[in-house]
Design a protein around this nucleic acid. Structure first.
Lengths: 194, 194
DNA sequence: TTGTATATTGAATACACATTCAATGAATGA
DNA sequence: TCATTCATTGAATGTGTATTCAATATACAA
């Protein structure tokens, strides 16, 4: 393994450790020394890998942003593209839940993204988190579902926002209690159903 | 107006100012001087009213906790107590949305409570926020609705958690964008419907 | 009026914590 | 083998900010 690869591995380890701690104790209550101790690694060395705590957060948020994109436009999503709109969303949620179950950091990522979007956190990170937008895509899908009569009437944008807000809320609930069972995707999609 | 009443008024003013700032910029990014400047009042005087920033947060969280109790067991809730379960929840959400529309701090309170529950914030506040529990009450209601055939099958506790997680998510979305229209309560209750 | 309690101020203090740094150790390549 | 680069350490530094404090003004009670 080359030096560069080693460094990359180490960076990932730091990122994952930080993600855990940020979600568990919050960004501000997580001290650089906490992350260092958990990796483990000396405090000073952290700055060899990330130039500041803020940059570390930013990288995580970028990961989250990319992940969200990948989730909604990746191959799995493509494969379902011509299902009826309600089937599509159900399948989507199904995949999201089962993926998150295998890779628990996905839950943490949801929580982190939510925190960064809502709470006062460093400007830069906030911007990146805010730029992620699943609303419009889903709104279009909802409009299609309405034409087909599977979804109820209503402003597709508003419905899309409610749908995602619910999903966000539920993912955060699940993140807080890993024992919690995933809900039936049908329940959530019902928000939109005729 | 007595001295004591004056002090009480001033305390409320500080609390409301702090609530706004905590939600807008986050607890940690809100400096005591920010709150003082916004009230307005000198920095030192803040400590005449609240012994620390942490205590200030704690009082807000206590308010939020009481408010939540009041909302779910207050007279408005009592009045609807023998409606069918789905009607009850719909009416409940309706009242919550319209109340929050008149008293916008209610949105802020939702956001703050969510932040305190999830993010690392001072221990004490966290405990108080966690102690609030609407889950069990709603779960009982859901069980009733299932008997009457208005709600779908499923673990009432899980359904209740999903219901409140959705509500929380939607309230937070609305808090972030005050222009956003409230969703039709029917949409949310559909999560539970048969 | 006078004395006492409370309200108010803004500068001084103290502390926590991100960041820097000088020094040491380990790997790589010639 | 030596030289150079990178990895690592933990203590020193500096900064931001909650909190304290000594001083002053204002209200109140007798």
């Amino acid at each position: 393994m080359t030096r560069k690869e080693q460094k990359e591995e180490r960076r990932k380890a730091i990122l994952m450790t930080a993600l855990n701690l940020f979600v568990e104790k919050g960004y501000y209550d997580t001290k650089i020394t906490d992350i260092a101790a958990a990796v483990p690694m000396s405090t000073g060395l952290m700055f060899h890998y990330f130039e500041s705590k803020e940059v570390l957060l930013l990288e995580l948020v970028k990961m989250g942003a990319e992940g969200t994109q990948a989730l909604s436009s990746g191959p799995a999503a493509q494969a379902m593209a011509d299902l009826p709109a309600d089937q599509y969303l159900k399948g989507f949620l199904q995949q999201m839940f089962s993926f998150a179950n295998e890779q628990p950091w996905v839950f943490n990522m949801f929580v982190l993204m939510g925190q960064v979007r809502r709470n006062g956190m460093p400007e830069e990170a906030r911007k990146v988190a805010m730029a992620v937008n699943s609303i419009d895509f889903t709104a279009a899908l909802i409009a299609r579902g309405q034409m087909d009569g599977v979804f109820r009437a209503g402003d597709p944008i508003l419905m899309s926002r409610c749908f995602w807000a619910s999903v966000q809320g539920i993912m955060e609930e699940m993140a807080m209690d890993r024992e919690m069972e995933a809900p039936d995707p049908e329940w959530i999609v019902s928000i939109l159903k005729a």
